[in-house]
Write a protein that binds this DNA or RNA. Structure first.
Lengths: 137, 137
DNA sequence: ATAAAAAATGCACTTCCGTTGCACTAATAT
DNA sequence: ATATTAGTGCAACGGAAGTGCATTTTTTAT
């Protein structure tokens, strides 16, 4: 039993062949991926399967969804021990206008914001747009 | 010549009947609106016109686009003197999970974030999700 | 005032992504 | 071995963004 299989099982997700491949694919990539990206990487597999795999991963806390402002949902593996739903674990994302890639900046947490009276915060999403380190170099 | 016409002209946008109506509609609403909302409000007008009106408004700095995580682009009028493109003018947006409405919190600016070396910030988008003041009361 | 040019609007159509229903297959439990 | 559940594949739908072109309206120049 591989590391990936163990990871999936620990999150109560059955480690099927397809799921292992997708997990591997995302682990190798350092950037957030869209459903389309996975589709292209696994042309033989059906879109629905990939779609539902991502949904399952998301529900089980294996990946988190990223909304980088392109109106295309991206996904990235959660760091070990990451609790995306907790406010203090919310990191920010960077979207490069040049290469169009989106990365997690897991070290940069979203600062706490004081909201006006009556507003209750439950989640936050901060995306910085600009030029990434690869493209600015 | 009305106030709205003056505003549009000052941004080098011709104050056509349609544009004035759309501007008025957005000024009356206190929340960010989607293209679909405007479509429903002006059933007689063509979607393309409304679409392009928003694009024009956006280009000319009359409205700013908001990405509230619903994957539906919203738009809101810029405050007088607002310079959306400037970092210090970036306010945050609040999306209510109950009423599904998105509002600008123009008083709450996005704090400056230190990025890792090589990353150049040009724009930022911060959306807080939760329960709005109307729904929590 | 009128003709020419430019801008705005409307119509039809396309594309892309997300999503769902249903049938089929594989895995697990009894 | 069979019943049950989970996963996968196929087909199709729906919403929203976007584009090309014809038509109308507005502006500009004569």
């Amino acid at each position: 039993m591989t590391e990936i299989e163990k990871t999936l099982e620990s999150k109560t997700v059955r480690p099927t062949a397809m799921r292992i491949l997708i997990y591997k694919y995302m682990a190798d990539k350092e950037i957030a991926v869209a459903l389309t990206d996975i589709e292209n990487a696994f042309a033989k597999a059906d879109r629905t399967t990939l779609y539902r795999t991502l949904k399952t991963f998301e529900e089980k806390g294996i990946v988190h969804q990223i909304d980088d402002g392109t109106n295309i949902s991206k996904y990235a593996l959660c760091e070990p021990g990451c609790n995306c739903e907790l406010e203090q674990d919310l990191h920010l994302h960077f979207h490069c206008g040049n290469c169009e890639e989106t990365v997690c900046l897991t070290e940069q947490k979203i600062p706490h914001i004081n909201l006006p009276d009556g507003y209750i915060a439950e989640d936050a999403n901060l995306v910085i747009k600009g030029i990434c380190e690869k493209c600015s170099g």
